[in-house]
């Protein structure tokens, strides 16, 4: 596992994980409380469904593990969330999370990075969620346009 690395150091083709993960009911309720997802399937079930949007946190988990020094000199900005789910993920399931830096590219003089993340059951290897996360690495330049 890399140490002392920034997110901006990741290179196309790098694979992060797989990492074994169990998402707890507390994690689901806390996330859903913060995002105002108050449905009973998230808040009241003893083994709640994990909202598919929560896959975004698996990217952050991989960043914490593999890029412990953070984002580098510029804040990164999340540009696109793209998730497909094949079955509900339940709190308490043992999962395997893996990330692939599938692409780094320039677009309108800004640098972007795609990471493809999968969530699978550990027991059967069944694919539950596929997620492509796109970030802009050169946020300071992007912010000038946004402001």
């Amino acid at each position: 596992m890399a140490t002392g690395r920034y997110t901006s150091d990741l290179e196309q083709g790098e694979i992060l994980g797989p990492v074994e993960v169990v998402i707890s009911p507390f994690m689901v309720r806390e996330y859903c409380h913060a995002t105002e997802l108050h449905q009973p399937c998230f808040q009241d079930d003893p083994q709640p469904i994990v909202p598919p949007s929560m896959v975004h946190l698996e990217k952050l988990r991989l960043y914490t593990l593999y890029c412990p020094e953070g984002c580098g000199p510029n804040a990164r900005v999340h540009y696109c969330f793209d998730a497909r789910w094949h079955a509900p993920v339940r709190a308490g399931q043992t999962l395997l999370v893996q990330g692939l830096v599938s692409r780094r590219y320039l677009k309108r003089e800004r640098e972007y990075m795609d990471m493809d993340i999968t969530l699978r059951t550990k027991a059967e290897g069944r694919l539950l969620v596929e997620y492509r996360d796109t970030i802009c690495l050169s946020y300071r330049e992007a912010a000038k346009d946004a402001a």
């Binding site: 399937c41 469904i49 909202p51 598919p52 949007s53 900005v77 999340h78 969330f81 793209d82 079955a87």
Partner: peptide
């Protein structure tokens, strides 16, 4: 909650 069943998808660009 049927939204959370197979197959589902959500894409957002900021």
């Amino acid at each position: 909650p049927a939204v959370l069943e197979d197959p589902g998808a959500l894409t957002t660009k900021f």
